[in-house]
């Protein structure tokens, strides 16, 4: 994407092709519209988070983060991510391997099912687990008899987080591995490698960046999930509150500085996610441009 845009930039800078250049007033006007729209919709919300978080200086910020309830919320959020990201990483790799390396019937249906959690509203996602494990749910009485708590407890939060983050790694890897085909793995096997060796020495290096990209997106959602977790949590401060839930409580109690202090940590996580994402895209565009240049070079000498 960025690579192709760069090519057009090149032709435009080189004086612009005849008839593909917009009039000056239009370039200026549209740029202003785009910049103002993005500034109001995206930049202002970020600015107000930091402005409020630090409105009482560093001391106010530090005091807000150091509260014991904030700490336990941070720990629970990290726990949910630490469980759900590896689970969905393994799932994503397995699903992508099955879908990209083999032909079977119902493949498109399988891809649709993998994407389903994206189409389910977070509130409904949380509700599914209440219907299954809640006090009045299908397994509720069975669980109650054995004194196992899932809903309004930590396992429910982890389950809801796993559900909403199922598709992230798989949907990055499936198109990538489909495009790469299976010749390289087959070559490795014909040279005597075992299946696992082909996977770790050939497949993993090939999909490395897509894998990292999927993992950071999965992680961002796991750390930030609100709706689904809100339904199963029960909002017990210090026990079942994740960072987004703690932010909600603080905000509703008009404790704006602590609320935005917690929020600023999640904003930093989001910004870091964007930096990594664009770093990977930039790398991909550069290596793509190199391949194109080499091909062009070969064609020119031939």
């Amino acid at each position: 994407m960025a690579g192709a845009a760069g090519h057009f930039g090149g032709t435009n800078k080189a004086g612009g092709r005849v008839g593909t250049r917009d009039p000056r007033w239009m370039r200026w006007g549209l740029t202003m519209v785009a910049v103002v729209f993005l500034a109001v919709m995206l930049i202002l919300p970020l600015v107000i988070v930091f402005a409020t978080a630090f409105s009482k200086g560093w001391a106010g910020f530090a005091a807000a983060i150091a509260e014991s309830e904030s700490w336990s919320a941070i720990k629970l959020t990290l726990l949910a991510a630490v469980v759900s990201v590896p689970l969905n990483l393994v799932f994503g790799v397995a699903a992508a391997w099955a879908i990209s390396k083999f032909e079977f019937r119902g493949k498109n249906l399988l891809i649709t099912v993998i994407d389903l959690p994206f189409s389910v509203s977070p509130i409904i996602a949380g509700m599914l687990f209440v219907l299954l494990f809640g006090a009045h749910g299908w397994l509720g009485p069975w669980l109650a008899a054995r004194d196992i708590k899932i809903i309004f407890a930590v396992p429910g939060i982890v389950l809801a987080t796993v559900f909403v983050t199922v598709p992230f790694v798989a949907r990055e890897l499936i198109p990538l591995m489909q495009a790469q085909g299976r010749e390289e793995e087959e070559a490795a096997l014909s040279l005597g490698a075992s299946g696992w060796q082909a996977f770790f020495r050939v497949t993993i290096p090939n999909i490395k960046w897509g894998l990292i990209y999927g993992v950071i997106l999965c992680n961002a959602r796991a750390l930030g999930e609100f709706g689904a977790v809100s339904v199963v949590s029960g909002h017990i401060q210090g026990v079942t509150n994740t960072m987004p839930l703690q932010i909600e409580i603080l905000y509703n109690e008009y404790k704006f500085v602590p609320a935005f202090a917690m929020a600023s940590l999640l904003v930093l996580m989001a910004l870091l996610t964007l930096v990594v994402k664009h770093g990977i895209e930039w790398r991909a565009a550069r290596s793509h441009a190199q391949t194109v240049d080499e091909t062009v070079g070969v064609a020119a000498t031939a």
Partner: peptide, 16 residues
């Protein structure tokens, strides 16, 4: 920055 809404937790977007 266009991708920010994909990465920013919705509760944070909500309060800001």
């Amino acid at each position: 920055l266009v991708d920010l809404p994909f990465a920013l937790p919705t509760a944070v977007a909500g309060i800001s």
